[in-house]
Write a protein that binds this DNA or RNA. Sequence first.
DNA 1: AGCACA
Length: 223
Amino acid sequence: MDVAPCHTVYVKNLDESVKKEELKKSLYYLFSQFGYIIDIVALKTPKMRGQAFVVFQDINSASNSIRGMQGFLFYKKPLVLSYSKREAEEITRMKVSMPSKKFRQMYGADQAAAVAPTPIASEPTDGDTNGKEVDMDVDAPTSSKVANQILFLKNLPEETTSMMLSMLFNQFPGFKEVRLVPNRHDIAFVEFESEGQSAAALTALQGFKITPSNAMEISYANK
DNA sequence: AGCACA
């Protein structure tokens, strides 16, 4: 029929009165269920208003979102979805593992806030760090079946940033913060305001793939 | 109806 499959979904028939920021955010929430989103572009220029581009890391995510959201009522208007005619720059340049700088500025912001404290037992840091030996024998954080407002994530890919996790978990009510663990790229903690809210996020994002190879495992953190 | 930011 029309355009060849690609990573980018062309969205049209959008309500033109919705502010650009809000539009992108809503699109992000709506489409992130289909996979990792690298970027969303929406312009309010005369030619480009009412349209947007959602750039997925995986083509499959793009395809599934087109199937799944075609005609979806969004701000009272049915979404009209197709593949984009041209592929996004991020994709053609193979900068696929991270959101674009612009996207990061837009939704990221909280790098600093999110990276800060970790719930790991404070290790006596007697300054004899003589080089190569990475001190990895801190009690590895573990998971628990007991409900907890703090989630424990494992099997995260190396490229994971707190910003990516924030964007993912942000969409659930009660989200407080993401905490990365120094020297462990593969695990993280995500805190919510209540156990009910953490449970909702756990269920929704269980097995979510940040990259095609890593399905994250979510459980409750130990109390 | 309209396929792009930097």
